[in-house]
Simulated assay, not measured.
Amino acid sequence: MQALLEELKILNREQLAKRWQECFSVPAPNLSRSTLLRQAIAWHIQTQALGGLSLVEKRQIQSGRVKPVTQTTAGSRLIRVWQGKTYLVTVLDQGYLYENQTWKSLSSIAKHITGTPWSGPVFFGLKKSSK
């Protein structure tokens, strides 16, 4: 499995599209970027080797009873798309890593990104807005 994952790193878009076809039995989406193809193929390889979701997890997803993650642990990554740009924050033991800088709070990162005060947990989808 590790060798297959490593190989993905060096494949070009055309090679990734071919691998996509092999994995999913459908052509790769025309406008999808290599990064997306690479990640989806890697996911497929890992689920084939390690197993996918359990039957209970699949049923929870289908029923809509999946609870959102509200607590983070060190190493977790938070992703937010804001005005067409993707922002990635890594949770540390003490604070958050964003743009190679350690921040004390998610709210300070959200304010930096948007230019206006935001609840960081709301901005990054960890908590619903009270509005």
Rank of each mutant, 00 (worst) to 15 (best):
Q46E: 15
D93H: 13
N30F: 12
Q94Y: 14
L97N: 03
N30L: 13
Q83F: 14
V66F: 09
S108P: 02
W20I: 00
R77L: 08
I113T: 08
Y87L: 03
G115E: 00
P117H: 04
Q101T: 02
S76Y: 14
L55E: 08
S119I: 07
W20N: 03
T73F: 12
L97C: 04
P117K: 05
R80C: 10
E57F: 02
W20S: 01
W118F: 04
A74Q: 02
V91G: 05
V89A: 07
P121F: 01
H44W: 15
A42H: 02
Q101I: 03
G84T: 10
V69P: 01
R38L: 13
L50W: 15
T114Q: 06
A110Q: 06
L106W: 11
G52C: 06
T35I: 14
P68S: 05
Y98F: 15
L50C: 06
I61A: 12
Q21Y: 14
V66C: 03
S105E: 09
F124S: 00
L53A: 06
R38C: 07
L50D: 11
L92R: 04
L78N: 11
G120L: 09
A28V: 01
Q83M: 11
A40W: 12
S54M: 09
G120T: 00
V91R: 11
F24E: 01
C23I: 00
S25P: 07
L106Y: 03
R59T: 05
L92S: 00
I45H: 08
T47N: 13
Q60N: 09
